[in-house]
Design a binder for these strands. Structure first.
Ligand SMILES: [Mn+2]
Ligand SMILES: [Mn+2]
Ligand SMILES: [Zn+2]
Ligand SMILES: [Zn+2]
Lengths: 156, 156
DNA sequence: TGTTTGTTCGCATGATTTGCAGATTAGGTC
DNA sequence: GACCTAATCTGCAAATCATGCGAACAAACA
């Protein structure tokens, strides 16, 4: 059982405590909202979710905590097409597929070898490579499941 | 001699004329500034260049013209890491290499990439795939040519 | 030269994110 | 439990990038 991607709220509490940082209700709430969250939420989306559970929480605090986590390497950031920054609890090396219809962003794991074989632009030493697929996700493509198809395209 | 990438100022003038659009000095200036421009400039960078040659030109007009060209399919747009939109006269299918040192953005020909072989995320039908390399460009990497090394990292 | 209609320009506004400072509180000490 | 203090939270200002809007302007044409 490997866990290169966990970051449970408990682990984050542990990390914060070990760094001498305080465990506040706001932080704990955000830890839980991020836990196993594969939606690549924006700061504002997390603020909305958080506000429902903790009325009065400040958007500034959400940004602050997300920035802290990012600087600690406990959270990833991605942006697509100039939209707002999206936060990604998935710290594994992976890529993304953005659906033009519903706006969902799915993780795409690519075998390391494949990417390496591709990363060879002349005169350039890439330290990282990101691949973004734009298209239509399975849910939006299947003509049958048109009933529960999400239509909230959350792109900019 | 093929020219899948030209868009000379003259051609754009022709295109605009054929669409019943007017040929203004502002538009002509921007056409020339974009011609064979491989710098992936932002709207503001183009505004600065344009202002030097045509004092009084409005940033609003620059945005307007760039948007028009984009909607006409005569200009591409790319964004990196949440920075400002960059405009790309290179309409061929290609990718980009961003230098962490000097911020330059180089085109990466798709010939070097076998993207098709990699474009197979499960349950997803990609209509386009973009690859971005982050790293150090040849100029910044070579220990010899440290003299004329550009240091203007224009990232956000 | 005059008319028409698209264009330019300046400013307001929207969206996202960060800076700042005072109010608040977590966590340790007695 | 009361107290202290540094860290944190919060509200608001401000920076950046981009777009909406309307009045002034000018390209195209008769
Ligand atoms: Mn992801
Ligand atoms: Mn390019
Ligand atoms: Zn979809
Ligand atoms: Zn460089």
């Amino acid at each position: 059982m490997h866990n290169e991607n966990v970051r449970s709220p408990e682990q984050l509490v542990e990390r914060f405590r070990s760094e001498g940082l305080k465990i506040t209700p706001q932080r704990q709430l955000l830890f839980s909202l991020l836990h196993e969250n594969a939606e690549h939420p924006t700061a504002d989306a997390l603020f909305t979710s958080a506000s429902a559970l903790m009325p009065g929480i400040s958007l500034r605090t959400v940004y602050q905590t997300l920035t802290d986590l990012t600087e600690m390497g406990e959270l990833g950031q991605v942006t697509f097409d100039g939209g707002a920054v999206r936060f990604d609890p998935n710290l594994t090396d992976h890529h993304h597929a953005v659906c033009n219809e519903c706006g969902t962003i799915a993780d795409v794991s690519i075998d390391h070898l494949d990417v390496v074989s591709i990363s060879q632009p002349n005169d350039f030493s890439p330290s990282s490579t990101s691949v973004v697929f734009h298209g239509v996700c399975a849910k939006c493509a299947s003509p049958s499941s048109n009933l529960d198809k999400p239509t909230n395209n959350q792109n900019k």
